Computed example of a mutant assay.
Amino acid sequence: MPATCNVVVLLSGTGSNLQALIDSTRAGDSPVRIRAVISNRADALGLQKAQDAGIDTAVLDHRQFDGREAFDRALMALIDDFEPQLLVLAGFMRILSATFVRHYHGRLLNIHPSLLPKYKGLHTHQRALEAGDSEHGCSVHFVTEELDGGPLVVQAVIPVQSGDTPQTLAHRVHAQEHQIYPLAVRWFAEGRLRLGQQGVVFDGQPLAVGGHSIRS
């Protein structure tokens, strides 16, 4: 792993996780360099956050392409122009093709607002409350062809409180996302984290199936 790890971030929305990544790179010893931020939506607020930080941005509108595969091929070409060692999904609201996922195997991270493997997909906070769960949280994982099913790197666990609504739970989970995503990205940039043949490897040792667990 090079002394500086070039990272490309994909997003579709406000970019709160992008901002957390930007803030984390401002530490003088950070090996992470956010090389570019790419969105499929020209109105994504995250693009402005990137521009304010002096980061290159690009827009590729999926509606201009004939299907997912065509869009993903163009997206891969755009990403590869920036020569990233790591690709980070930060609220990128597109289901990626198998071709795309295989192209970036072992260097594609995502964050999901649940304690995977629970509640893959959408409406995770509502589903956790409806199930009566005592704990909830978020997960960083390597992306594979299985939606929200890749090997886990780290999870943040928070207690569900008696008066929680989906909104209050989401607020507290977001705060944890902003802690663990920059942490996982830094681990990768430092060469401590990689995806091996048998699963996630951390500091040269196989990581437990559930990844690191951080409780608050």
Score class of each variant (00 low, 15 high):
Leu115Asn: 01
Ile111Trp: 00
Gly204Cys: 15
Lys120Cys: 06
Ser134Asp: 14
Thr144Asp: 14
Val200Met: 03
Ala208Leu: 14
Leu129Cys: 02
Leu96Thr: 10
Cys5Gln: 02
Ala77Trp: 02
Ile111Arg: 01
Thr168Pro: 04
His178Ser: 02
His178Tyr: 03
Arg107Thr: 12
Ile214Lys: 00
Gly132Thr: 15
His178Thr: 04
Phe71Gly: 06
Gly54Asn: 11
Asp61Gly: 09
Arg41Leu: 12
Leu75Tyr: 02
Val153Ser: 04
Ser16Val: 09
Val200His: 03
Ser216Ala: 09
Cys5Glu: 06
Asn17Gln: 05
Arg41Trp: 04
Leu11Val: 07
Cys138Thr: 13
Phe202Glu: 06
Ser12Tyr: 05
Ser216Lys: 05
Thr25Arg: 12
Phe142Thr: 08
Val101Leu: 13
Val160Gln: 08
Leu115Gly: 02
Arg107Ala: 11
Gly67Arg: 03
Asp52Glu: 12
Gly132Pro: 14
Leu96Asn: 05
Arg102Lys: 15
Arg192Thr: 14
Ile111Ala: 00
Gly191Asp: 01
Ala184Pro: 07
Ala77Asp: 13
Ile79Asn: 00
Leu122His: 08
Gly28Ala: 11
Ala27Leu: 10
Val101Asp: 11
Ala170Arg: 14
Val173Tyr: 01
Thr124Asp: 01
Ala175Tyr: 00
Thr4Asp: 04
Leu147Trp: 00
Asp164Phe: 13
Phe202Arg: 03
Ala3His: 06
Ala98Pro: 15
Gly196Gln: 15
Ser139Glu: 09
Ala98Met: 13
Glu69Met: 12
Pro159His: 15
His112Gln: 05
Gly15Glu: 07
Gly199Asn: 05
Arg172Ile: 07
Val154Asn: 03
Asp56Ser: 06
Asp29Tyr: 05
Val9Arg: 00
Leu108Thr: 09
His141Val: 03
His171Asp: 05
Gln176Ser: 08
Phe188Cys: 11
Ala98Lys: 15
Thr25Asn: 07
Gln161Pro: 01
